[in-house]
Design a protein around this nucleic acid. Structure first.
Lengths: 338, 338
DNA sequence: CCATCTGGTTTCATCGATGAACTATCGGGC
DNA sequence: GCCCGATAGTTCATCGATGAAACCAGATGG
């Protein structure tokens, strides 16, 4: 209609409806009282002119953008896709749009995101770090309105939504032990053992279970990987099966690697769980549809999403309560692979 | 440091560096000449004060937000997760942030997104419609800076990046015929046949191949589904296997459904490809790691992402060339399942 | 009859960065 | 010595919505 669809402003709408821009604003945003028939006329004018609110202007004035950022390592990992989906659903209930940022698990990118370099002035940030951890608290500075996901990794004053990584990993490993497995491998350890990460916590749970059962903790059965993709899981499984005494069970630190492991097992003509039992972590939707279907740890992903968004909402609306650490409930989902 | 981290402005930085806000702007954004040592001082001040550009203000002035929207049905479908990943990578090269919107494949939501109700004043929109199609051109009005993905569905004046759905589906079906299969089913048809959609185009390719080979097109072998999730594929496959004369092959309109189908087959103690050959569509990363690995159509996803972002970039920088329709290259990726 | 209140609307300044236009300084070139 | 052009900065208005406060009925109450 108009030459530049951008250029319709509240003043234009007001002119058409016979009121000022301020009244248009009152109709569209404010809770100030407006006479019903005026409201009617304004809304009609909005419609006729195809008016769209200019969010930059509103954002400049109010300091709110209506957008939050979600920073995750890689949306190609199904768990993060699922997490993103759930978080976006929650965010929608707060009328937030979500800007997605992939960190690629790179330290540099994670720092950039925290320091705001890549952050497009959002109202808040939900952040699942991978490369950053304890000792990096300084990068949190200036980030009120921040929620950290996934692991308990910062000592700094910031809200965390965390899984019971150690406990749930121990539960998964105990399950394998209870089913009579004795040579239990782990896939997904990190090359930097000292860092507190999902990898090191799940590894600890695994080790605790073995130790409690009096089983040997064989270092050659702990597979270190670069990343947590299916390809990494498959490669690690192949290396395990090449060993002189291959394992009779393997605990993968996420479902993607478990899917890779299942594939490697089948490719070599072996069978899960008969030859090797496989257990995963995350309970992604696909875990139900692998062959055999995947036994895995349900870490409370939906809770993570809900708690994270709610915690952020509280910060955004000005809460100054001391940062909380919220734990999600986990459970073991038993299917066919173990 | 400051009470409200938001409040550091270019003027503040300038004051500290002994210049005006305009010069700070020149250093940070403009290509106007600035003396090296001034630049130095300004950058130092930026650092010391922890200054972050206010994107709302800039957006208000320039009319650019530095953000584009990507609207897809559901990021829980792996193909869309992969597509989103690739598009975000491309967008990053244009210094764009990406706001993700899920339509849920709902018509109402798709209309809302096009009409801007849920659109947070972005610089442009990449949109994969599902429920909208030909006849809905009116909803495109006022959307310059729009790229439509996935299928050739609008006659309106808008850029499309489209797959060769009919041809590639025909190729996939022909492959099954060449391998000696005769009772070939299809999973993924839509209940609204008349709408031009991925579903109807892939169905057409399937039918063309059967017809060309002189094979019967049995309507009971064309499975209609609600959505394209793994669960839908599994359910459809189970219905097929319950038939008196079950198929010896099945062409699934996406990989997620194919994964569901593979699972259904294995759950009933049957084997792919021996009993039933399975072929998918999309070549998602997981297709490589199913058991058996999945033969599928590679539709040129990376090209979709690149072309879409480039086309959008052209529009944003003011191109008024007639809208283009860009086709991606497809190929058949042969693995074990067929 | 004046003071007070309340619903409904307007006026005005403002958020922070940037486009446009302008000033100041410094070398040349003739 | 004067003009010109280039370089380095400045000033000022402006983008569009909204907070604050004023304004203006008309109703209520003493």
């Amino acid at each position: 209609m108009t030459k530049r669809s951008q250029s319709v402003t509240m003043a234009d709408v007001g002119a058409r409806a016979g009121v000022t821009a301020r009244t248009v604003s009152n109709v569209l945003s404010s809770n100030a009282p407006v006479k019903p028939e005026t409201r009617e006329r304004v809304l009609r004018a909005v419609d006729e002119l195809g008016y769209r609110m200019n969010n930059s202007a509103r954002g400049l004035r109010t300091g709110r953008t209506g957008t939050i950022a979600l920073a995750i390592p890689n949306i190609g990992i199904e768990y993060f896709a699922e997490l993103a989906r759930l978080i976006m659903d929650e965010a929608a209930r707060h009328d937030w749009a979500v800007v997605l940022q992939q960190t690629g698990a790179r330290r540099r990118t994670e720092i950039d995101i925290l320091s705001g370099a890549r952050r497009e002035h959002t109202d808040g940030l939900i952040f699942q770090p991978h490369a950053l951890g304890p000792g990096d608290e300084r990068y949190l500075a200036g980030n009120d309105r921040l929620v950290i996901l996934g692991d308990r990794i910062f000592n700094g004053p910031v809200d965390h939504v965390v899984m019971k990584n150690v406990e749930s990993a121990r539960t998964a490993t105990e399950y394998l032990i209870d089913r009579g497995r004795r040579r239990i491998a782990a896939i997904g350890a990190s090359s930097q053992e000292h860092v507190v990460s999902a990898a090191s916590l799940r590894l600890r749970g695994y080790q605790e279970a073995l130790r409690a059962a009096g089983l040997e903790i064989a270092s050659e059965r702990v597979m270190v990987v670069d990343e947590w993709f299916m390809a990494d899981g498959a490669a690690a499984m192949n290396r395990l099966l090449d060993q002189p005494h291959p394992p009779d069970a393997v605990f993968c630190f996420n479902d993607s690697m478990a899917i890779g492991a299942l594939h490697a097992i089948a490719s070599r003509g072996q069978r899960a769980p008969d030859d090797v039992a496989v257990i995963g972590f995350d309970n992604i939707p696909a875990a139900q549809y692998t062959n055999p279907s995947l036994t895995t740890v349900e870490p409370g992903t939906a809770q993570v999403a809900k708690y994270a968004v709610d915690a952020l909402a509280a910060r955004v609306s000005g809460s100054h309560e001391p940062p909380r650490e919220i734990f999600t409930a986990y459970s073991l989902v038993v299917r066919r692979s173990a």
